[in-house]
Amino acid sequence: MADFTLPSKFDRMIHQPVRLAIVAVLAGCESADFTYLLNATEINKGTLSKNLSALEDVAYVKITKGYKGKIPNTSVKLTAKGRRAFTKYRRQHRRFLDSVD
């Protein structure tokens, strides 16, 4: 994996490693609950919450709080805007890696 000292045209919101991990996981599904995101990204609860809020502020993710039976459940979904941003990021990242090679 390349070192992440990349050009300025990269989307800073996604480029940050913790948020990149969150968005990468969400890109592989329709939605994921908080527990899955915790396990898949191996981030602690506080950091995950903080970065999810940041992503929600720019409308990259949609957070829905509800219940599954009697248990509270937080579901997170990548919005169309977030998905587009991630696709663009992947494309730029690949191009960057190709140029480094």
């Binding site: 994996m1 990149l20 968005v23 996981v25 890109a27 592989g28 599904c29």
Partner: peptide
Amino acid sequence: LDFEELTLQTR
């Protein structure tokens, strides 16, 4: 971070 693998793992 291998973000491509994270996406694949979820899929």
